[in-house]
Amino acid sequence: MSADVIAPPPPENPTEDWLREERIPHIWCPGCGIGTSVNCFTQALEESKLDRDNVVIVSGIGCTGRVAGYLKLDSFHTTHGRPIPFATGLKLANPKLKVIVYSGDGDLFAIGGNHFFHAARRNVDMTVICVNNMTYGMTGGQVTPTTPIGAKATTSPFGNIEEPFNLPFIAHSCGAVYVARWTSFHVRQLTKAIRDAIAKPGFTFVEVISPCPTLFSRRNRLGDGLDAMKFYKAHSEIRNGADTREVAISHQSKIICGKFVDITRTTWHDAQAAHLHRVMGNRFVPPRNWEHLIKSDPMEDLVAETIRDSSGDGS
């Protein structure tokens, strides 16, 4: 090698390596928080040192539903509300995959609410990232299950009167093992939360409070994206370990952020593999890529289960 060859400079933006650059510019509006969350997500992936080939991203429909299409990963843009069952199929058929669902509040909690509840209950190993902008952006600013009381939307033009969902409480009560909420202002905390959620086995959930300047903020006279950042900075309160029943969001009021839940619960795969191995013995033929889930001989599983049963610890 000649001495005067200069190595190319490192890429300036580490996110670029994770994007399908030929699809940029993206469709998101100026001031929208989705792109910020994607920066945090790619940074979290970068720091996670995962085998990139095994990372799969699944989105539903809507503005956040477009995330899958911009990431240079195995990416699936599914139907409205159904990314979680699609992701369930991916994970069940190949537990070696690291499956991430990335979608919005309307997709995951209105049309797709039932799927969220059941995936959390089953504790299927996946991470769900919900960008909550409290509106349906793609269709023009309609009311969602997270629109605060009093906020206006095109389909609640005189102000919403329905109680919004408190997403961390839903996730917690349905069985999620990790639950955190940050805003698109909290990029460092959000990056770490996504990294932790991805690393943790089981159903993990990260809510990202994000502005929709074009539709939600404008209709409610809340200013632009920068005003939203100022609001998040001034009105967020970090309360790690907060009782999820007490983190509901009201219109233009305090946003409680932090890591609320971080518990351990047997995943669907671990439970299924151990149980079938125990009750069926050698008649159980592990599915493809399940070999690593069979941790002992059936009798050891039986002993372990007996000890657990007699300990009386329901959790």
Binding site: V58, D74, F76, T78, T79, G81, R82, P85, F86, A87, T88, G89, L90, K91, L92, A93, N94, L97, N114, H115, F117, H118, P287, R288
Partner: peptide, 22 residues
């Protein structure tokens, strides 16, 4: 692998996730 899903909307897309996992 068999899983009973929460409804037929879920069942009919879960199989498609599995297909894309091989």
């Amino acid at each position: 692998v068999f899983i009973q899903m929460e409804d037929e909307l879920a069942a009919s897309i879960t199989i498609q996730g599995a297909v894309w996992a091989g």
